[in-house]
């Protein structure tokens, strides 16, 4: 059975088994492939999928989501839950900023807040010019100035430095002028 995004969401919050089953049948295989290809195991897939669905339920109950594609949104949330799991694992191994042991609901609430912060950053990022988005995307993903000169066809390193500075300043200004900023960065 094919459902629309609002039907999936209302089916989820009303606990409609048929809808939940359709979500598993339709979307679980793609998430499974992604996680298994990114250092995960079968049990991880189940946990990630469960957390992502609970995230959607909580989010939808707070404020109804307007989604163009349920599949794309669910997949992004699953990917982020998995990014987070890998980060926690990494911190455990390196013993760097080892996360405090917390119960399941606290952990999912923390993910919720982290996702909110990311959504806020992305919202402001999307308001930038295409050129700024391109250069900052490289900057945030760890490219050096020299690599950016080559990849983005800039004349000199100095031009890249100035562009990064200006674009980042613009993004920060957009963030700080939003009243949600204080709450998200407290």
């Amino acid at each position: 059975m094919n459902y629309t995004a609002p039907q999936y969401l209302s089916g989820l919050i009303s606990g409609d088994r048929k809808v939940v089953n359709a979500i598993y049948e339709r979307f679980y295989p793609k998430v499974r492939t992604f996680i298994l290809q990114n250092k995960g195991k079968e049990d991880d897939v189940q946990d990630v999928f469960q957390d992502a669905l609970m995230y959607l339920i909580t989010k939808q109950k707070e404020k109804p989501l307007i989604l163009q594609s349920f599949e794309a949104y669910l997949f992004t949330i699953c990917k982020n839950v998995w990014r987070r799991t890998l980060k926690k694992e990494k911190n455990k191994v390196t013993n760097k900023d080892a996360p405090t042991l917390v119960d399941k609901e606290t952990d999912l609430s923390l993910f919720f807040m982290e996702q909110e912060r990311l959504d806020f950053y992305l919202e402001k990022f999307r308001l930038l010019s295409e050129n700024c988005r391109e250069i900052l995307s490289s900057y945030f993903n760890g490219f050096s100035y020299e690599e950016m000169v080559k990849e983005l066809s800039y004349a000199t390193v100095n031009t890249v430095r100035q562009r990064v500075f200006k674009c980042k300043a613009k993004m920060i200004q957009l963030m700080k002028s939003d009243k949600r900023y204080t709450n998200l960065r407290s």
Partner: peptide, 10 residues
């Protein structure tokens, strides 16, 4: 947080 390979834990 904006790095696709990373995640900021709170």
């Amino acid at each position: 947080h904006m790095n696709e390979e990373d995640w900021e834990l709170m």
